[in-house]
Design a protein around this nucleic acid. Structure first.
Lengths: 187, 187
DNA sequence: ATAGATAAAGAACAATGTTCTATAACATAA
DNA sequence: TTATGTTATAGAACATTGTTCTTTATCTAT
């Protein structure tokens, strides 16, 4: 329905413009041209609306890390990581919502499943790089978790403005390179 | 003053018990045995109280990463990182507040300075490890930022419950090891 | 001991999430 | 076409919470 999309669009705009504290049901509804009740009839509650944003965010993130196959699986993994950062930097408040509110929001199984699917993509890329002997280790899940942790930390601190490097994109790449080198097979 | 400490203690307890949404001025004041006004006369606002928690948190974090000198600077760095994780896991809501609210709260210069001092400790450890040729690179700030990013990401996801590794402490150590290996001088 | 200042308690106010109620729109069946 | 049951909407109303105001108590200094 058009109103549902309008509400999500309005919420996304307000979120990035004013941050989470500025995201009120009244403002979202007004911007979408409906009464506050419209939010409740469609999303059940404000948390329901936030969950819709959460899912929209993970769908976007999924698209951002999607990459065409390349000669080297490790290169493809790297490209996906750059897409990850690009998404986070372009949608800082949404990214913040997606990850920092996970702890507070109790998400529906569908929402959790969607988030997990993004992680699954990363696991696949890691697995491919292991198969091509560009990464060492036995558990692709373990390694993917570690890569994700590092990426998430870097973009989180960058979004929060807690970053002391001069070139942040370069710093992100350098960290990732060091990590992947440390994960490479010893010879 | 005793009341100020009581308020902070009460706020810390409520924070860890019920999370940030459950941290209301009324509840904090009641638990400390004073009227809500007591919060405002001492901290100015709820955000002022949160900033006090923020500063308490960074003082605790500073203590947690403090380690006696060891034979190897890199070992000392590793020990400090383990202390970092221990603090975060033992005070998840406080850790969450410290880092995720940085973006929203506008902190006083003193608060920012305190946070930066913790980072300074990390930079020193990295610098020492560079001097002893256990780490490569030129900018200890850059490298420290990358180490911090990875640590922060790992504990953030762990706290948020977004962690697919079986042994989380081991996963943290493995990530850190890989990163530090990747940062070691090539030979 | 008293005057001034300080702090506290409780009421009151504003914003916001949520619910209630009455009304309007709409689909469906005879 | 019309009547009816359902759904959606608008606007008011309610509860919670951050904040402020007002009055009262307490404390300090001379």
């Amino acid at each position: 329905m058009a109103v549902t999309d309008s509400l999500i669009d309005a919420a996304l705009a307000i979120l990035e413009e004013t941050g989470l504290p500025g995201l009120t049901v009244r403002d979202v509804a007004a911007r979408a041209g409906v009464a506050p009740m419209g939010v409740y009839s469609r999303f059940g509650s404000k948390d329901g609306l936030l969950e819709a944003l959460f899912m929209y965010g993970f769908a976007s993130l999924q698209a951002a890390i999607e990459t065409p196959p390349t000669a080297s699986p490790l290169t493809r993994l790297r490209t996906g990581c750059q897409g990850y950062r690009r998404f986070a930097i372009h949608n800082p408040q949404l990214y913040h919502l997606m990850f920092e509110q996970m702890l507070l929001l109790d998400l529906s199984p569908e929402a959790k499943d969607l988030a997990q699917r993004s992680f699954g993509t990363l696991v696949e890329r890691v697995h491919a790089a292991m198969t091509s002997s560009e990464l060492a280790g036995t558990s692709s899940t373990e390694v993917a978790q570690q890569v994700w942790s590092a990426m998430h930390g870097a973009v989180s601190l960058e979004i929060a403005g807690v970053h002391f490097a001069t070139d942040r994109a370069q710093s992100f790449t350098a960290m990732l390179d060091a990590l992947l080198i440390g994960m490479a097979p010893r010879r």
